[in-house]
Design a protein around this nucleic acid. Structure first.
Length: 999
RNA sequence: GCUCGAGUGGCGGAAUUGGUAGACGCGCUGGAUUCAAAAUCCAGUGGUAGCAAUAUCGUGUGGGUUCGAUUCCCACCUCGAGUACCA
């Protein structure tokens, strides 16, 4: 019987589904797993896009599946779930274009994903599937949102506390003595004042403390997508999805007070086993810096300006101050002489987009305001400038400029001819500022002659003493915007009364996403939910009712006689559902709570999480934040949700290009013909062009016509423009980079009439380049064909064999036959010589075979533990090669071998296991035990080296002493030959390792 | 600019408490089988010189430590990822 992988794989996939082989118990109350330790292996759940899975997706899933299957063999109760992050932009964009409801496309896409995952043979417990867009799921997302709303961050206990506690304190003491995280503009009040405040005023104040709050904030607005984006969704000033420009805009938005957790998010990193680069990028993103706040008095005004500095020790080097142009004090302090110039400068910088400012860091610009501040120690007059190198959003939006100690201040001072006083001992600052903290401070009153570290300490103390400043830790991390002006997301469980947000009680959740006519913003610019007619909250009936029942549509209106109020029109961002899904898998069918305490206490956290590093400053940070919040509330039992994280590298695609000729038309009236040129031809043409450009025009024409096959319109001779590479679908390209021209023509309407310049043999050759695998680059390879042609087991092993898991690598099917024939060889090992009949002997295996087996057990187990899956595939190949050479067909060897290979190639393993006479699945059979005794050797093949270079080998007994080895080696005739009569200076013998003779 | 990671045959890659560089696979060459092909099997395969035994060079570059360095240290070059006027 031959290896019919398709039949075998379908058979076992059905078996696993039918027998619930991978169902995880919560916790197991009986059976072999009764006292088994738990192990939670998680993959980052995918967004189900319309393109389906490509070969890059399963890489991480295969790795985690191997690990999960291995842990089952090791006797763990394994939780290995999968689900879908099913709210998101692409389904909605598709809905806008086609009118198709996003729920429907999402459903279809999920079906495709599921089919593809099933065919790869993952050991997921599908009973626990979650979908973030299902009401049963987002009901709990809404509930968690409410919990955040009902909490504030207490700095005394260093955790989230119920907002009711805060209200109690306000009633008793006001807010002056309260140590809590709040908005910076929160004003002080006492208890008496609080009690006289109106309900609306009280709510306004509480919003400044809540962990999720509504505020007018500067947001990243993306006009093309019609929505705001979080900082991590904006890359270099353009949107991560779609690559559209993003601008800054003031909008009333929900935000998450993640900044309350900055220090804990940093500290937590020390307790988890995550890749260092990923930790680094979180540390970087949080951007903690230690320094001081210093207040400067602004002369001839009532204002003080606080600045943040990491180098308070350089304060005696201050020769000017710079404000961000947008700083609110700028207009108030600018003198009349300078108001026109300042206004003009502000106008110029406002026009420059964030992106331009970033792209152009070299140009120095700024404007003097005419105002001066007073130096807090010397009393000197310090000119106040504005400049766009100072960012409004960081620190206080203003800096004390120390040109001798900061290169940017230095450049600014040089450019505008501002004095650069030197406060560093024996340091030349004629060329560059000195940013070295080792430099000794001088000309600085009480901190002169101190090194920076000491001077900083002293300065902070002095600032405190004089009441003009204090030590301060500043973070780059901003609160996260939580509103999206989109349809396909979780609705907020929020309605507005008197303009203030009100939470809807838990028992009325979920608030279902309403139906809308169209998925675009309304004509008056409201988010898509503004199109819904059933979108008002009736506080009497406690249900969603028709909008026209609202007495007034404006959320500011305070007269709502009938108790019907408008509901929130924004929806939650993509990261809402993904910030807690790992907890839901623990108890996915719970209708009352997001998960039971029992389940949460049993599974606790993820033991192994595998996913891409692109989520470093998004999902992986937000989820840690929510987990810490839930932990504070006593809702989960651990405050870090992932113990160990592995980033799998991206699988890259090899894109194919055709080259479009950009020639100049002779007659601009006539439409230009589309001409594509084959790669080598194009290269030839470019070369030709260079030659031709150097010759006369007449000669040029002649040369071209001689070149022959390039059929070009006459006009082209006049202008040899460039070629534009255009992606072509790799499905139209064969292994020798030859394009199927007909298929390409039929691909797009505009290509139908195109002309193709081929090679002399009539072939059209495409260019190749390695890029990220993506639908838009048409370089996607999907796993279906591979499963069909070679089988899932081959796909699984091949993806692992490609290279180290964490490394990015281009997809290339060249080597797949090697892995496939390995599986065929493995199959043959269990069958008799004619390859037809299953044939395994119960006789004792040879020592050699036992050695091969145990060597393999040892290496494979080490490899799995180290996530070095590529080397274990090699180990399996060696084992099978050796056993084949030994003609080994002994049960005592082949049974454990099947178990060893099961995590990698589960289908063939199950089939062989069944043929070996077992009636149960192989999935939970104990992992073979490694025994050292089979590997014990009596001799060693010693490398004999001379001056460190190996010249020959010599097999010697391991019992020999150093001296005996030395004697034997020296006496050997090959040694004599090498030495040619010379006497070695030194002989180094490392028993069991090496012999080295030094001449 | 800063942070992190990586440079090894024709290709993917293996080897680190410093100890035979190139495991395993692909590709390539030759052979067996076959009417032929596919599949399969056997042998060879880092460069250079040589029929060969063998010699010699060889892990991005230059230096260092060592009996011995792909592995450790210093400097540099190249590529990739992240981040970017963060005071």
């Amino acid at each position: 019987m031959k290896y019919h992988f398709n039949d075998i794989e379908t058979k076992w996939q059905k078996y696993w589904a039918k027998n619930q082989t991978f169902k995880a118990l919560n916790p197991p109350v009986s059976g072999v797993l009764k006292n088994a330790p738990k192990f939670y292996v998680l993959d980052m759940f995918p967004y189900p896009s319309g393109a389906g899975l490509h070969v890059g997706h399963p890489l991480g899933y295969i790795a985690s599946d191997i690990y999960a299957r291995y842990k089952r063999h090791k006797g763990f109760n394994v939780l290995h779930p999968m689900g879908y992050d099913s709210f998101g932009l692409p389904a909605e964009q598709y809905a806008i274009q086609t009118g198709q409801h996003p729920a429907k496309t999402t459903e279809e896409n999920i079906a495709t994903y599921r089919r593809q995952m099933d065919q790869i043979g993952f050991s997921f417990d599908w009973n626990r599937e979650v979908r973030t867009s299902e009401p049963d799921y987002y009901k709990h997302t809404q509930w968690i949102f409410i919990q955040l709303f009902e909490s504030y961050y207490c700095l005394d206990t260093d955790k989230a506390q119920p907002i009711l506690k805060l209200i109690n304190r306000f009633e008793k003491d006001g807010n002056a003595t309260i140590n809590a995280v709040c908005d910076e503009d929160t004003s002080l009040f006492n208890a008496a004042e609080w009690n006289t405040f109106s309900e609306v005023k009280k709510q306004e104040i509480l919003l400044k403390y809540r962990l999720t709050y509504l505020s007018e904030t500067k947001v990243n607005w993306c006009p093309a997508l019609g929505t705001v984006l979080a900082n991590d969704e904006v890359i270099n000033g353009i949107s991560e999805r779609g690559g559209h420009p993003v601008e800054q805009k003031e909008m009333k938005q929900w935000s998450m007070r993640i900044t309350a957790y900055t220090q804990r998010l940093l500290d937590g990193l020390d307790t988890i086993d995550w890749p260092q680069p990923l930790k680094d990028s979180q540390i970087n993103w949080i951007g903690r810096s230690e320094g001081a706040l210093v207040a400067f008095k602004i002369l001839n005004s009532e204002f003080n300006i606080e600045v943040f500095t990491t180098r308070p020790d350089t304060i005696f080097g201050v020769s000017f101050m710079t404000f961000a142009p947008e700083h609110e004090l700028v207009d108030k302090i600018t003198t009349s002489d300078y108001s026109d110039a300042v206004a003009a400068y502000k106008k110029v910088t406002a026009k420059r987009s964030e992106r331009e400012r970033m792209a152009d860091v070299k140009t120095i610009s700024g404007q003097f305001t005419g105002a001066y501040a007073e130096h807090p120690f010397t009393g000197e007059k310090i000119p106040i400038w504005i400049g766009d190198y100072v960012l409004a959003g960081y620190g206080t939006g203003a800096v004390m400029a120390v040109p001798c100690g900061d290169q940017r201040d230095y450049d600014f001072a040089k450019y505008f001819d501002i004095p650069i006083p030197n406060i560093f001992k024996d340091i030349d600052i004629s060329e560059y500022a000195c940013e070295d903290k080792q430099a000794i401070i001088t000309n600085s009153d009480f901190i002169s002659d101190m090194p920076a570290k000491k001077a900083i300490k002293r300065m902070i103390y002095e600032l405190g003493q004089r009441g003009i400043g204090a030590g301060k830790i500043n973070y780059r991390l901003r609160d996260a915007v939580f509103s999206r002006q989109r349809y396909w997301g979780e609705p907020f469980p929020v309605y507005y009364k008197d303009g203030m947000p009100q939470m809807i009680a838990k028992k009325h959740l979920p608030i279902l996403l309403p139906e809308v006519e169209k998925y675009l913003p309304t004509e008056d610019g409201k988010p898509p939910l503004g199109n819904a007619t059933q979108w008002a909250w009736d506080t009497n009936l406690n249900k969603v009712v028709n909008n026209n029942l609202i007495t007034s549509n404006t959320i500011e209106n305070s007269l709502n006689a009938n108790g019907i109020y408008p509901l929130e029109l924004n929806t939650m961002p993509g990261w809402a559902g993904s910030s807690w899904y790992f907890n839901r898998y623990m108890d996915p069918d719970n209708t009352e709570e997001f998960a039971s305490q029992e389940a949460l206490n049993y599974w606790k956290n993820v033991d192994l999480y595998i996913g891409g590093s692109e989520h470093a400053t998004g999902h992986l940070l937000y989820a840690r934040f929510w987990q810490k919040f839930l932990f504070d509330k006593g809702l989960v039992s651990v405050d870090e949700y992932v113990k160990k994280l592995i980033n799998q590298g991206m699988i890259l695609g090899t894109s194919a290009f055709v080259y479009r000729w950009n020639y100049e038309s002779e007659d601009p009236q006539k439409p230009k013909k589309l001409i594509f040129v084959s790669k080598t031809k194009m290269e030839k043409v470019i070369k030709e062009r260079k030659t031709i450009e150097n010759s006369e025009k007449g000669a040029l024409k002649k040369r071209i016509s001689e070149t022959g096959r390039i059929k070009i319109p006459q006009a082209v001779y006049n202008n040899w423009s460039n070629f534009t590479p255009i992606h072509t679908d790799i499905r139209f390209v064969n292994a020798s980079n030859e394009l199927d021209i007909e298929a390409f023509k039929n691909w797009r309407e505009e290509y139908k009439e195109a002309e193709f310049v081929t090679e002399s043999d009539g072939k059209f050759i495409v260019g190749r380049e390695v890029e990220k695998m993506s639908k838009s680059k048409y370089n996607v390879v999907n796993p279906d064909d591979i499963c069909h042609n070679y089988g899932a087991d081959t796909l699984r092993m091949y993806e692992m064999f490609l290279g180290p898991l964490e490394q990015a690598k281009p997809w290339n099917t060249a080597g797949i036959t090697g892995v496939h024939s390995f599986l065929k060889k493995l199959w043959r090992l269990y069958h008799s010589g004619d390859q037809e009949t299953f044939y395994v002997s119960d006789q004792k295996p040879s020592d050699e075979a036992l050695k091969t087996l145990h060597k393999t057990i040892k290496k494979v187990e080490e490899d799995i533990v180290n996530f070095s899956f590529n080397t274990s595939v090699a180990t399996f190949m060696i084992a099978v090669n050796e056993l084949t050479a030994q003609n080994c067909n002994k049960r005592e060897i082949l049974e454990p071998l099947a178990i060893l290979i099961e995590p990698y190639a589960p289908h063939i393993a199950e089939e062989l296991w069944e043929k070996l006479g077992h009636t149960d699945s192989i999935a939970k059979v104990p992992f073979p035990k490694f025994e050292e005794k089979y590997l014990v050797e009596s001799t060693k093949v010693y490398p004999i080296s001379f001056n460190g270079k190996m010249r020959f080998t010599l097999e010697l007994s391991l019992d020999l002493s150093k001296e005996e080895i030395e004697k034997i080696v020296l006496a050997h005739k090959k040694t004599q030959k090498q030495l040619k009569g010379r006497i070695p200076k030194k002989v180094i013998v490392v028993p069991g390792k090496i012999v080295n003779l030094v001449e």
